[in-house]
Design a protein around this nucleic acid. Structure first.
Lengths: 344, 344
DNA sequence: ATGAAAGCGCTAACAC
DNA sequence: GTGTTAGCGCTTTCAT
């Protein structure tokens, strides 16, 4: 008998008050159908009167679960992936979790050492599931998760054959729509600035560009032309470099589709420096990962991703995976939207 | 005897392997000095061999603590407080927590109902401490935290007499520096766009403005003049409205200090619409809560807040409060920096 | 349908 | 110093 008692009512006290056994109280709390209405009512009354709140730690210990999921954010990416992405995703996750009593753990992973530590966490089953954002092709975490049979959902995928559940934006479709838009407006030399080719998202957006170009038939000066493709790295400086390259290779360019709005910002700066009017001389459409496009130039057309919805969907999918014991992989691709804010 | 055993080694197995009792293992894990070097070595070896990781739930249950802290974010604010603030704070907290084995719980609070639910969490002692951002004057949470004697740290304060621990930026000093800068550059009619007067941060920035104006003596056309003070609400539209008002009241304004960069953006738009050149005709300095200033106009001077450091400091202060049992309140004010990016 | 009882893995008090 | 033991509050058989 020690004085550790926290002062909060326990399940046992509820049972006493309701005049039932602890097992019954537990069943009521967990919504078991095997309780009489009478007992259920008594228990619920007792819970309300006592202001009983189950002890999470005890539950976790006895039930071998944690009622918590982790959102893993590779630190280097939090800067690159511009900020609204980050908070939109979190908002979405939060919205989905609101009615649950799942908790959201935020895990920033900066170094391999921290990754190792997180792997320990996972192995020790300290969370019921994991949400991963900005996953790189060579990220070891998804495979680890799979080995551990830990429910997990990625935002984006590592490749076409992604084996782990994921929620992704329709990058191909978004890019295609953007380029088709430019072509429909009469642009005849549409270039593109891509992301690093080892990122699936970059390849997808390039695919979309290519599809639109190839579908254009005679609407363009040429078919798919590698001279109109410049490689960026999703940074503004990368966008600048790519734009300069493009202007050297094809000075007559009259439109650019950038695989990210940050690169679009870089491209825009270069275009202006070289005396081109944007969007009149050279129209610019970017994939909107951040809100930079909006702030930089509220009139710029861009491909909007449903970031918050991605967050919601990720959480929903993860909860489903946790609920069923089997690991059925789910793949969800959400539509993007071409937000036309200019009259190019 | 049931098959629930998770497969992970337990403290007991470590004890067996090391040839000591469970108590000793526990002492080693928790860094108690009351263990012989011999025993300690044996235990550590066993831990390494078995790959033992303590079970958090069991620890929490037995030790009546959770090794987790919550970061509470009032949902309505996440949009208002522009995004980089948010991720910088989190980055800072994460950095500070990295060497700890504290977990960070993210709690979005959207509605009074959710707040009530969170209060339950707190009462049930599901976290060891709480970090609060963007606290309003009438927010009931800080007082609740105090009643519960739950360690807590705010970012910002509700008033001069804040009773809960807080970490804040030097709003008065930052504003004063900004206005002094404008005056030093020869501006003679410096206006200000404030935030809502029921927010301490807004009042502080106005105080700084006032101090600088009053210190300027003959450097300005007039002393502190309420006609040069327009009220905004930290939104861009609010900045616009305030700027229009100011131009009606004092068309000769040649400088504006905005209490946030979002409002500065609004003001800038209005200035340009009315044919003023920025910064030549009217110089603009804003408090940089977001990175909007940087993106919108990389050359704009602004008052930079050490957001990431605020996050780190908040976490550090909270950990200290948790470590000592007494609740000593700490108040930390971090310096801001005037980042001069133009030559106004 | 429900009470009793056996743990879940750990901490901390207690004895030696 | 170290082993032993009694819980922490809950879930989950197992009887009944």
């Amino acid at each position: 008998m020690n004085g550790r008692h926290s002062g909060r009512p326990t399940l046992e006290e509820v049972a006493l008050r309701a005049g039932v056994g602890r097992g019954t109280v537990s069943r009521v709390i967990n919504g078991s159908p095997r309780v009489s209405d009478r007992a259920k009512a008594a228990v619920e009354a007792a819970i309300a009167e006592l202001g009983y709140v189950p002890n999470r730690a005890a539950r976790a210990l006895a039930g071998n679960r944690t009622d918590a999921i982790a959102l893993v954010i590779p630190e280097p990416e939090t800067r690159l992936f511009a900020e609204p992405y980050f908070s939109d995703i979190i908002r979405g996750i939060g919205a989905e979790l609101a009615d649950t009593d799942m908790q959201l753990l935020l895990t920033l992973i900066r170094t391999p050492k921290e990754r190792a530590r997180f792997a320990q966490y996972l192995a020790a089953h300290r969370v019921d599931g994991v949400l991963l954002v900005s996953v790189h092709e060579d990220d070891p975490l998804p495979d680890l998760l799979e080995q551990l049979e830990m429910p997990a959902v990625l935002n984006g995928r590592r490749s076409d054959l992604e084996s782990v559940s994921y929620v992704d934006a329709d990058n191909v479709g978004g890019a295609r729509a953007a380029v088709a838009h430019l072509i429909a407006r009469g642009r005849r030399q549409v270039a593109t600035i891509t992301g690093p080719p080892d990122m699936y998202v970059a390849r997808s957006r390039l695919d979309g560009y290519r599809q639109a170009v190839e579908a254009a038939a005679g609407g363009l000066d040429s078919g798919f032309d590698t001279a109109l493709v410049a490689r960026g790295d999703f940074t503004e400086e990368g966008g600048r470099r790519a734009m300069r390259e493009l202007l050297v290779r094809r000075p007559g360019i009259d439109a650019v589709f950038a695989a990210s709005d940050v690169m679009a910002a870089g491209a825009r700066a270069v275009l202006r420096e070289t005396g081109r009017r944007v969007p009149d001389d050279v129209a610019l459409v970017g994939f909107e990962d951040s809100a930079i496009a909006r702030h930089m130039d509220p009139a710029l057309t861009s491909v909007r991703q449903p970031t918050e919805e991605m967050g919601r969907t990720m959480a929903r999918v993860l909860l489903e995976e946790i609920a069923e014991r089997e690991s059925v992989r789910r793949h969800v691709v959400l539509a993007t939207e071409l937000v036309q804010r200019d009259s190019v």
